[in-house]
Design a protein around this nucleic acid. Structure first.
Lengths: 207, 207
DNA sequence: TGAAATTATGAGCCATGACTCATCTTGTCA
DNA sequence: TGACAAGATGAGTCATGGCTCATAATTTCA
């Protein structure tokens, strides 16, 4: 799978610079970013960019792969260390926050027809959510009847909304809280009463 | 405000054709659509398009104005004829459905920095939602504490999600239902029990 | 019906941006 | 250290797409 001969020192350095620059530039301008600007910001000639990534699509694919790897990593550590009852909600929130920081690129994260095919990494991400969802079901922290595709759809929506709309931090937090309320059991995490009390409609006052 | 001399017959006809074609083409390709394709689909030369709309931006602005006018109209009729207690939810659903049908254009509906400034029409839309929200509060159908900016944020998110993700009709309906659950009071519209029963966490099974 | 004005046409102009290639530079390794 | 291969460079090619303008076609109205 990786029988690639080691790169020369400068090549390795340049490749890293290009990836870093590309992540910035694509975050700012999305798909519309120009390869030339990536080269400029990396302090490299255009030809160098194309030597490492034969196509703009390839470059995009590379940074998306990195990005997704980082997101999946976080899921791992949440699965290992976090509270299974709240992992679903924690991870959801984490992804939205990351997206807001990363910007326009995310609009390509889950897309199908466009530039980059999601492939196995997105499947991995979905699988993780599946596990978190099951754990949350066991803990009774999600509403009964919530399906995985709904969770993913809500995630897609929130992420896109956060990127497209220019929400303040505060509004973003409140919106995520609302969305999670839609998933959360009435006495789940975020509301105080232990169980079976009358207050099942109160606002969850986060943010 | 409208002291414009009447257009020649063919000019009026062409203008209409161009608008119709543009709506189609932009719905398919979004901002990336080319003026040439619009012209072709309208059965008109490129020059004609540019005579009517000096800039691609202008063309986009024109169809967005039409679009928004239609959406606001619907709000009017809901305000006039619909049930004030559910108008908020009905209108929310209507907008998402329209967007899904209209496609990529909507990604520009609420955007600020980009191509078209929203202007007063978006304000009108927000105002409508404000009224619906108040009515729903009076009727006790929304959770206490729900703010207008949250409603608009959830709307933006859902619309963008519906356009970006390739959701099935079914998934879209379920997702909208979930989002509305986040806004709905526990015994609001969509759940059956009249009031004060123990079942405040059941899925609202729409779709 | 026959000017005169309005509108339509579409071959180009120009800017942008993805991508190539002949040439020069630099890392590597004996 | 010297020679060779891997890599870097950037001017140039090509395609696309917004937009113009000289010319031709229509509409209008007296």
């Amino acid at each position: 799978m990786t029988p690639e001969k080691p790169l020369r020192a400068d090549a390795r350095r340049n490749r890293a610079r290009i990836l870093a620059a590309a992540e910035e530039v694509f975050a700012e301008h999305g798909d519309a970013a120009s390869t030339e600007e990536v080269a400029a910001r990396a302090g490299v000639a255009i030809g160098t960019v194309f030597r490492h990534f034969p196509t703009k699509r390839d470059l995009l694919a590379a940074i998306m792969k990195d990005l997704r790897a980082r997101l999946v990593d976080r899921a791992q550590s949440l699965a290992a260390e976090g509270d299974p009852a709240t992992a679903l909600f924690d991870y959801f929130g984490f992804l939205v926050e990351s997206s807001a920081r990363i910007g326009t690129v995310v609009s390509l994260l889950a897309e199908e027809g466009t530039s980059v095919e999601p492939g196995e990494q997105v499947r991995a991400l979905t699988d993780r959510f599946g596990e978190f969802l099951e754990a949350a079901r066991d803990a009774g922290t999600v509403r009964p009847g919530v399906r995985l595709d709904e969770v993913m759809a809500l995630l897609t929506a929130t992420v896109h909304g956060a990127v497209a709309g220019a929400w303040s931090d505060d509004l973003r937090h409140r919106t995520v809280a609302r969305v999670l309320d839609a998933l959360r059991a009435a006495d789940g995490p975020g509301t105080r009463k232990p169980r079976g009390t009358e207050s099942c409609a109160g606002p969850s006052e986060l943010g």
